[in-house]
Nucleic acid binder design. Structure first.
Lengths: 183, 183, 183, 183
DNA sequence: AATGAATGAGGCTTCATTCAT
DNA sequence: AATGAATGAAGCCTCATTCAT
């Protein structure tokens, strides 16, 4: 007794994202995703080939989203570092759980490549924003490789601090600002 | 045809630790742990109530071990920050896989408490070492809460950088030194 | 956006027959049949109650078709045994995959009866043709039951030899001729 | 609550063989095999890697068995063709259902090779017995390829006739004798 | 105390079938 | 009459755990 459901793909995506964030890849069953979405298990497979694809697509979407948001900063005249970091902090923490999984390696190599590329895109954008900021302040930019490490550390630390010290948003951001200045 | 085995508990612990480090909690089966230890699956259950307890106990031991090692720094006359960070880096990276799992939360709350306590112990010790170092240099120590955040960030970043930039130990350490100075 | 399709029933039948022949009953999904026919899955169920009925009806049609073709031999003045066997060989091998399934018994008893009847029809016709041939040659016909066995063996062997020795049509036919003479 | 079971491997094999014979590969579920054996599903997997291996091993065993039995005929002084065909008939019909599957192609290529080899072995042996028989009677043996076709036809027909005319063992055998003489 | 075969719940996935549009 | 998304039972397989030996 099928019922037509609107925007099911995005409903599934939302539920899956939520669950993966909370529990991590292997602790989430397709059954749970289906239940949380309010559909039958089989229906999931009309939208995603398998569990892994579901996971990858969920991440893909999230990171694309981040990228889009931060791209806007590159066009801005004024750039306030604190405001940017704050924004970064809030945005990234919307998807914290999923990103955990990206850091982990229990994804097979084909998917890993996709994830790696997505991550690179995101790092690149943050790097460019920070460079632009330094140029405005007249600060010399460091070596590319070192910046990369610094940006990476910054993004990861956003996730980690928010999880570990969830009630201390301001203090976390203030620490992250110091980290941003190391770059 | 049972065989008596000495120090079986520590043998299991070693094998399990190795495996959890490499593959993560859910990718390790009790069968593999038994095989790697060279015993039967049933025997595992004479030493650990279940898989989760095995995991927790393994972590417990490792962190206790770290603690012991770093405790020695507190008695030392001379304290070279770079040397300490280097040591920290190498020690922690020996158990990176396991610690990943600790960061994740797919452990139930009872066990989580234990892990939390263990982690606090480790943080505490590193904090004290850093304080001691600052005192020797005549630098004023910051607020407890802020130090805690910094130390935590430092430890996590050790794991993360080593995984992401595995061939760049020196550069990683050099970045971590800068982070340590933020504390 | 429904579209009206002419002769859909026969289009489905053709596609299904092709697929069942190639892959066998259980390896063919209703989805594939629909795709191959160029229609939606649901439409299949407007023409056939379920998968099993589709299968049965497809066979039914094929065997009827054989029957029709061989019926013509009964009216012929001249009858060359070799030519007949050759024709039989080629005709039957067009539907080999489906007939495999008929030989197997994973069909429930109701359908089995239908298939049995269809098969009997076909056997009957070949029997009559062979009798007619013998009469012309002045050879005495054997007992009904024995002829039945022989004809059955002949038909089955056509399928089997063509599959096992697919490149050896002439030699297969020559062997089958010998079998036909046993009848 | 495990209970130790003796000769479980052969018990599984027997049950599986029976079921595959009756229903064919895809209509037999691992659950049914387990139930019929009187064990849990998981236990099956302690003895066979997967369903396909179970199937292959069951066949393997049966054909090996046939081979062993017929090997004895090669040493015999006296050889009565009728007796041999009768024996062949009875032996082969013990495993009829499974052999069906060997004829079908729904096995992947790796396993198919094994099955093909096993079948060749069996054909070879029957061929040699028939040659030996002919030599004793002073009959010239035909070309290898033609004998192969004839022996294959003989074996298949044993299966087919017994299934189609199950109550007519003697008449089936008598027909098969005629087929054997064609070789 | 050690063994490892047996257990069975639970995970992923497929697919015949239904029915709102 | 046609559509195809939704359904959910059922299949294969894994693995933590138990317990007779």
């Amino acid at each position: 007794m099928p019922k037509i459901i609107n925007n099911l793909r995005s409903k599934i995506s939302r539920a899956a994202y939520q669950l993966f964030s909370e529990k991590g890849y292997s602790a989430v069953s397709m059954k749970i995703v289906a239940e949380e979405t309010g559909i039958a298990v089989g229906t999931l497979y009309n939208y995603y080939t398998n569990k892994e694809e579901l996971f990858i697509k969920v991440i893909e979407e999230k990171i694309k989203n981040h990228k889009k948001i931060f791209d806007k900063y590159l066009q801005k005249e004024e750039l306030d570092l604190e405001m940017f970091i704050t924004h970064l902090y809030d945005e990234i923490n919307k998807s914290k759980g999923v990103i955990d999984e990206v850091i982990k390696k229990n994804i097979n190599s084909k998917e890993k490549k996709i994830v790696t590329r997505l991550r690179s895109d995101l790092l690149e954008i943050v790097d460019q924003i920070l460079i632009q900021f330094k140029e405005k302040k007249g600060i010399k930019k460091g070596a590319k490789a070192e910046r990369k490490r610094g940006v990476y550390a910054l993004l990861i630390m956003i996730l980690i601090l928010d999880r570990r010290f969830p009630g201390e948003r301001e203090k976390n951001i203030s620490y992250l600002l110091k980290m941003a200045n190391l770059i």
